[in-house]
Design a protein around this nucleic acid. Structure first.
Lengths: 352, 352
DNA sequence: ATGAAAGCGCTAACAA
DNA sequence: TTGTTAGCGCTTTCAT
C-alpha cells in the first residue's frame, strides 16, 4: 500500500506538500496540486488516518457505547448519530455493553485505546463507570437515554415522568382502575422515573385507582412468561403500561397467550414507536420517544465540548408524545367516573 | 494522558519492557512485571492501539459495511459480528451505505483510511465497487447477504431459490392460485433469486397458477402505497409473498388498509423472522434466515484470510427455514387441486 | 532478560 | 510557496 512518501516521489514534491494538498492547510501552487492529485489517483493512495491522528493529536473518531445494538431503539439512535458524525468528518467506533456494567467498563476502555475525540454513552444502569474513567482520560463525554438523576455531566434524556403521567391519565380517563406498569428493571433510572410518573397520576386520581409495578426483565420472552404468571392470578389488571420496547413485545405475547381481549378486557400502552406497532391488532397506543432529536442533541453537545466549550454541564430533557391508537380504546363498560383533569400531569409539566 | 514512556519511567524500566509486559511477547522478570503493572494501574495508562498498529503493522480493526444499521436484519448481523470480533481481539468499525452504491464506495474508502485487517461487506446491489478497491488495497474481503452471482471472492448467503420455491409450494398446496411476489428492488440479486424460486415453483405447478412480481421499494411506507394501488385493482391476488423484512411490513400495512382478510381472502408470507412477527394477527408465516450463522461464517472466513489462508474463494449458501404460522393458513374455499409434490423445490434442493 | 535506538506514516515547526 | 527535519506512541530489531 502506497504511503505519502510514494506519492511525494511520484509527484516530485515533498511529503509536506502532499499533506498540504490533501488537507488544504497551506496554499500550494496549482501546478503542484495537480501533480499531487494525479499521483494520488494513479497510486490509489488512501491516507492513513491513524498516523495522521498520532502526529497531529487531532482525532476524527468518536466512540459510541450502547447497551445492545440489535435493539431497534439503539440501532436507530446510532444510525442518526452516524449520519451526523459523517457530516462533521468523524467516524464512529460503536460497541455494545450487552446490558452489563462490567462489560460497559471494559468496552469503554476499548474505546479509549483508539483515542477518540469524544464519547457518547448510553449506560446500562446508574453505576456509570464511564464518568470517572473518561474524566481521567480527559475525553469529552455525553450521556444519553438512561441518564442519572443528578447529572454532573452533559446528558440528553426524555421527560419520563411527564409522559408516564400523561399515559396514566389517558388510561384512567378511559375508565381503567387497576393499572399494571411493567418496567424492565427498576435499577434503571428511566424506569423508576416512568413508574414515578404513573404513581403520581394514580395518587392524584384518588382512592378508586390501584397501581401495581412489576419487573419484566431484559428479554421479551422473560417478560412474557412473568406477565402470563401475573395475568393468570387474580385480580386481573384492566390496563397494562409497558415501559420500554422490549417489554412491550413481551406484553403483546403474554396478552395473546392469555385470551384477554384488547382493549375490551385490558388496555395496552407500549413504549417507543417502532413501525410494526401500527400493524398489530389492535394498533398499539405507544409513547413515541424523539430518538432522532436525542441523537442529534447528543452529537451537537459532544461537538461543542470537542470544540472547547467549558460551560457547566447541560442536562436536556426532550418531550415524548403519546400516540393514541386502538389498544387503549374504551373498555367494555363505559367509565363510571371519567376524569377531566390530571393534576399529576399538570404538575410534572410545570416542573419540567 | 500517560504514554508508554511515562509508565516506563515510573516503573524504572525501558519502554521495551513495558511493551513486553503488556503484550506478553518476551518473558520478563516477575519483579519487573509487577512494577510495570503497578505503574500502569497508578497512572491509569491505556495503550494507544493506533500507534501500536502503525509500528507493528498488525491491525486489530475490522471494517463492516452494511446498507442500513437501523434495519433489524443488519443490526442483528452486526451484533453477532461484534461479539465474535471481540472474542478474537478485534474492534469493529461499522458504517452504513444508506442503500446507495455511491455512498458504499465512499464508506469503503473511509474504512480503509483506518487500515483494517479485513472487511465484511453487505453490498447494497450488484455493482460492488468494493471488490476492486479492497483488492487494490490488499485487504481481505468477505461479502455477505446480497452476494453476486459468480463470486470471485468469499461470499456468505442463503439458499434463496430453494426457500422461495418451498414457500410457493406451501401456498399452492394451500389452494392459492394467484400469487403476488413483492421484491424490494430487482436490482438486488437476492431478490431476483427469490423471484426465480417462486417462478420455478409456479411453472411446475402447471397452468392453473399465476404469478405476478412487483417492486415495493426500500421503505415500508412506499411499499404499502404501491401495494394498496395494486390490491384495489382486479384481479386481486390470493397470496402475497413479501421478499424481505421491509416489504413485509409494507405488506401488512397495505392489507390492514385494504380490508382483505388474512388468510381467508389472501395468504401472507413474509421474509425474516423478527420477534414482532409472532404478535401480529394472524401470526405471520415467514422465512427465517440464519442471521447468526451467516455472521459467524463471515467472521470465520475473514479470520481465515487474515491468518493467511490463500485457498480459492469460498461461496457458502446457508439454508433458510419456513416458519409456518397462521397468515398462510387455509383459504376460504378448500383447494380445488392440492399439490402433493413440488418439482421446483426438489430440483433446487438437488442443485444446492 | 533487558535496554538503546530506529522507524511505522504522517503533520508541524522551522528554514529557505 | 516549498522543503527539511523532528517526533507523535508504539514495537522491534540489535546489542548487551
Amino acid at each position: 500500500m502506497p504511503s505519502i512518501r510514494t506519492v511525494a516521489q511520484r509527484a516530485g514534491v515533498s511529503t509536506a506538500t502532499v499533506s498540504n494538498v490533501l488537507n488544504a492547510r497551506r496554499s500550494v501552487a496549482p501546478e503542484l496540486v495537480s501533480r499531487v492529485r494525479s499521483a494520488v489517483a494513479e497510486l490509489g493512495y488512501i491516507t492513513d488516518l491513524g498516523a495522521a491522528r498520532l502526529r497531529s493529536r487531532r482525532s476524527t473518531i468518536a466512540g459510541v457505547l450502547v447497551p445492545d445494538i440489535a435493539n431497534n431503539f439503539f440501532a436507530t439512535f446510532v444510525s442518526v448519530l452516524e449520519k451526523a458524525a459523517r457530516r462533521d468528518g468523524y467516524d464512529l467506533l460503536i460497541v455494545s455493553s450487552s446490558d452489563d456494567p462490567l462489560q460497559e467498563e471494559a468496552q469503554l476502555r476499548t474505546l479509549l485505546t483508539w483515542r477518540p475525540a469524544g464519547l457518547i454513552i448510553l449506560p446500562c444502569d446508574d453505576s456509570l463507570p464511564a464518568r470517572s474513567i473518561a474524566a481521567a482520560a480527559g475525553v469529552p463525554l455525553v450521556t444519553a437515554d438512561r441518564i442519572p438523576d443528578a447529572p454532573e455531566m452533559d446528558t440528553i434524556g426524555v421527560d419520563n415522568r411527564v409522559v408516564a403521567a400523561e399515559v396514566t391519565c389517558h388510561l384512567i380517563a378511559g375508565g381503567r382502575r387497576r393499572i399494571l406498569a411493567c418496567a424492565s428493571l427498576l435499577s434503571i433510572n428511566n424506569m423508576r422515573e416512568r413508574c414515578d410518573g404513573v404513581a403520581a397520576a394514580v395518587r392524584d386520581a384518588g382512592a378508586g385507582v390501584e397501581l401495581e409495578v412489576i419487573e419484566g426483565g431484559l428479554t421479551a420472552a422473560g417478560c412474557r412468561d412473568r406477565l402470563i404468571d401475573r395475568l393468570t392470578t387474580p385480580p386481573t389488571p384492566d390496563a397494562l403500561f409497558m415501559l420500554n420496547n422490549i417489554v412491550t413485545l413481551g406484553g403483546l405475547e403474554a396478552l395473546a397467550a392469555s385470551g384477554l381481549a384488547v382493549p375490551q378486557d385490558v388496555a395496552l400502552v407500549g413504549f417507543d414507536d417502532a413501525e410494526w406497532m401500527r400493524v398489530v391488532s389492535p394498533p398499539l397506543t405507544t409513547v413515541r420517544q424523539p430518538i432522532e432529536e436525542m441523537a442529534l442533541a447528543a452529537w451537537e453537545r459532544l461537538m461543542a465540548r470537542v470544540g472547547g466549550d467549558i460551560s457547566p454541564p447541560h442536562g436536556v430533557r426532550l418531550a415524548c408524545t403519546l400516540q393514541i391508537r386502538q389498544s387503549s380504546g374504551p373498555a367494555q363498560l363505559p367509565p363510571e367516573r371519567p376524569l377531566v383533569r390530571c393534576p399529576a400531569l399538570e404538575a410534572a409539566v410545570r416542573a419540567s
